[in-house]
């Protein structure tokens, strides 16, 4: 399947032909949709989609459903897990929340996506989704809203909390502390002096800021005066 990176998916297969299914902008479908032909969604579909063809979600289209299809091209909004036998394409205007599973995935710059990606071939997970499908069928379409609400939380990656004796610690500070500007030069200095070609350590002095100079004052007693140093070297 050849797909352009444009926002609209029309150019992917030329103009929408008579044979394919189109869901117009003002149309809302709730329930299960299955079939063997391309479906182009400008409107809204809630529920479950099972296609042996390509699903196109146009820029104004909204899908709140689990999707199984051969190929999926998203330029609109999808909330739900998407499984494709072929490829999933997220165009620049795509907004997707859910897990993606397909051997090939294209995400255009500008596309918004939150969820997990799996490019492994479906194996035991497939049975899992089938079991899920059977459960959904029993529960009717009650699942639609409940799952759509639950999914974003599921898709959000867990915060990396460290634990100590069963107590969750706050996340590690990533931004440097303010006082580290002073601490850093004095810490880094010995290492830099080893590498410096200037044996007197004067050439690098200009590089340090005021805080570095303060730090150097502490270190100064260890640096020999120029004259003495020369004598020692001879």
């Amino acid at each position: 399947m050849k797909v352009s990176q444009s926002d609209s998916t029309h150019s992917a297969v030329g103009s929408p032909d008579e044979a394919s299914t189109v869901v117009a902008p003002g149309t809302h479908i709730v329930g299960r949709l299955s079939g063997q032909e391309d479906v182009r969604v400008h409107g809204t579909i809630e529920g479950r989609i099972h296609l042996s063809a390509t699903l196109y979600v146009e820029p104004e289209g909204i899908i709140a459903a689990d999707v199984h299809a051969d190929d999926v091209v998203v330029a609109g909004t999808v909330v739900g897990n998407v499984t494709a036998a072929g490829s999933i394409v997220l165009a620049a205007s795509a907004r997707v929340v859910g897990d993606l599973r397909a051997p090939r995935l294209v995400v255009a710059p500008g596309a918004a996506f939150r969820g997990q990606v799996s490019m492994e071939p479906p194996d035991e997970d497939e049975e899992e989704t089938d079991a899920e499908a059977a459960r959904d069928r029993r529960e009717g379409r009650q699942w639609t809203q409940a799952q759509a609400q639950a999914r974003p939380a599921q898709a959000r990656p867990a915060a990396p909390y460290a634990t100590q004796n069963g107590v969750r610690l706050p996340p590690q500070r990533t931004a440097p502390r303010r006082d580290s500007a002073i601490a850093k030069p004095s810490l880094a200095r010995p290492r830099l002096e080893e590498q410096a070609s200037d044996p007197y350590g004067e050439g690098e002095e200009a590089e340090w800021g005021d805080s570095a100079k303060r730090a150097k004052k502490v270190a100064r007693p260890r640096i020999l005066a120029r004259g003495k140093h020369k004598v020692e070297r001879i």
Partner: peptide, 13 residues
């Protein structure tokens, strides 16, 4: 389309 099965509700303008 002819191969499509929808089980549910369709509302539209």
């Amino acid at each position: 389309g002819s191969s499509i099965l929808i089980d549910g509700e369709i509302t539209g303008e």
